[in-house]
């Protein structure tokens, strides 16, 4: 019974679509305007969650729930990501076989630059995230690339994020059609409902930020990238943004994409741009 209404609705939408199509080109999607999107996005969060300070957006659920914040503060006294931080620093300062090291691959010797990632590489025409940049550096110096979810790469990102703590996100979307397309693709992914549960990222992290999902409090989308990489108690180890995207997709029963695939890099690009001005709080500790 219900399904017939569904099919009828789809049919109706189809017919309506056909009629509208005639004028559709006039109402074609407006040219992408990332800065306008960002201002509206941040205004939504600042209006609906007035108590949250700008520096606190990067603390996700702990910015919106006192009970959770208290537990987080207890854990932050001596956070479990300390081992990854130490391992990351050691690896970051290790010399490659050819005598060079990570510092030679990054601007400002790799210190205090995490807030500029991801950036749009106009040469290759694609979004480059910190993980991609690390692996590019390793391959350029004869080292084999690392896994994008966890392990050593997450440890290196932990150290680099730690050196950027407090620095506000500063993501650039150049006026290059390919960059704008990547930005729009990330935006579309963020707002599209997917999976059998039919949720979009926005369903939880925009419309229900601060609400409870069984034991968890939903983190606001503003600043959600700032705390990565994170040590999740659930994982029992350090994990990257890309691993979290896979996890979130699975939770709505959508088949996830490969970490650092184009669709996930565009999503990270869009989400990071939305958080411009919000300071880095990574590495983070989460449930």
């Amino acid at each position: 019974m219900f399904h017939s209404r569904l099919r009828a609705a789809a049919l109706l939408a189809g017919m309506l679509g056909a009629m509208v199509l005639a004028q559709a080109p006039a109402r074609a999607a407006p040219a992408p305007n990332p800065e306008a999107d960002r201002l509206a996005f941040q205004a939504y969060f600042r209006k609906n969650y007035p108590a949250v300070k700008n520096s606190d957006w990067g603390n996700g659920p702990y910015a919106l729930n006192a009970g959770m914040r208290k537990q987080w503060e207890a854990i932050m006294q001596f956070p479990p990501y300390e081992f990854a931080l130490a391992a990351g620093e050691k690896e970051f300062n290790r010399k490659f076989a050819n005598g060079r090291s990570y510092a030679d691959c990054f601007p400002n010797k790799g210190i205090g630059i995490r807030q500029n990632y991801p950036y749009f590489d106009t040469k290759t025409g694609e979004v480059v995230t910190l993980g991609i940049a690390i692996n590019r550096c390793r391959v350029a110096n004869g080292e084999k690339p690392l896994g994008y979810k966890k392990g050593l790469l997450a440890a290196i990102e932990t150290y680099m994020a730690h050196t950027s703590r407090g620095k506000p996100f500063d993501i650039k979307v150049p006026n290059d059609p390919r960059a704008l397309a990547a930005y729009e693709a990330g935006k579309k992914f963020f707002y599209s409902r997917r999976g059998q549960l039919n949720f979009s990222c926005a369903s939880c992290h925009v419309q229900k930020a601060g609400h409870r999902l069984r034991g968890d409090i939903l983190a606001p989308a503003l600043g959600i990238m700032a705390a990565f990489p994170i040590y999740r108690s659930k994982w029992g180890e350090m994990g990257t943004i890309q691993w979290r995207f896979v996890g979130c997709n699975k939770q709505v029963r959508s088949v996830p994409f490969k970490p650092q695939s184009k669709i996930y890099r565009d999503l990270e690009y869009f989400l990071s741009y939305m958080s411009n001005g919000v300071p880095i709080t990574g590495p983070g500790a989460r449930p």
Binding site: A10, A13, D37, Y191, R193, S203, V206
Partner: peptide, 23 residues
């Protein structure tokens, strides 16, 4: 049937996602 539903979802979302964008 499930695959068809996911196709239908993708096609609908192709247009509907604009409605959820924070403006």
């Amino acid at each position: 049937a499930l695959a068809e539903l996911s196709i239908q979802q993708a096609r609908e979302q192709d247009k509907l996602w604009h409605n959820e964008v924070v403006r």
